[in-house]
């Protein structure tokens, strides 16, 4: 899932500028799950915005509305009636949702409330960690199910750098060295030869280096 964090209120209200009728749109997808984009966070943000402006002596009108997934146009249409007279919409979705919202309503001023951080999963009750860089060229079958692109700070493909201190990454002792884990896992599986083979320079064009990503269904053309 996509993991995102709330922007500071100051940044959001700066982006709102002179807008006085604001609708906060939550997303019941990924960002709700990581506790930043759900209906509750929308209400907290709406309240924060109202209080911020009232402290400044400027009353604003805010409301909240929930969207099942902002990254699907069909889920956005039902909120159209709520947009009448609205100066700006604050989106609690990831960057995808924010853009879909902007695309769905051409004249709507859309402000992102979150910083989209990474694709990851829950590793503790309240802790999420990155697991995928979406490189478009998965090699997890070669690395024992541990992604070096994501989990090695230098995205190395042929083994650890020389900086690994003990079992930890040189840049943060709380991050385990992905390569030492890959090595141990392959060794346990008796598949070290997978690592010993030279891994050629990666085709980054399938990921974000390759321009706008696109994917069509093969068995259905519009």
């Amino acid at each position: 899932m996509i993991v995102a964090e709330r922007k500071p209120l100051a940044e959001i209200v700066a982006a709102l500028g002179k807008c006085r009728k604001v609708l906060v749109v939550s997303c019941s997808g990924c960002t709700a799950v990581c506790f930043t984009g759900g209906a509750k966070q929308a209400e907290v943000l709406a309240s924060s915005i109202r209080m911020h402006y009232r402290v400044a002596g400027v009353p604003v009108n805010t409301g909240t509305v929930a969207v099942t997934r902002q990254c699907d146009r069909e889920f956005l249409q039902p909120i159209e009636h709520r947009l009448t007279g609205v100066d700006a919409v604050v989106s609690l979705a990831c960057g995808v949702g924010v853009q879909f919202l902007a695309e769905a309503f051409a004249d709507l001023w859309v402000v992102p409330a979150l910083n989209t951080r990474f694709a990851g999963g829950r590793v503790g009750t309240t802790l999420w960690e990155e697991r995928c860089r979406m490189c478009g060229d998965c090699i997890l079958h070669l690395t024992g199910g541990i992604c070096p692109v994501t989990r090695c700070s230098k995205s190395l493909l042929n083994g650890p750098c020389g900086g690994a201190a003990g079992e930890h990454c040189e840049i943060d002792s709380s991050i385990p060295c992905a390569w030492i884990h890959i090595y141990e896992r392959l060794k346990r599986a008796g598949r070290l030869e997978l690592w010993q083979k030279l891994q050629q320079p990666k085709d980054w064009s399938r990921g974000n280096a390759g321009g706008l990503g696109r994917l069509a269904r093969e068995d259905y053309s519009e």
Binding site: G159, P160, A164, Y183, Q196, L198
Partner: peptide
Amino acid sequence: NPFSGPLELRVLRLEK
């Protein structure tokens, strides 16, 4: 770097 992580791993990496 012979001084980082498992020694055996460093030798294999050198070989690579």
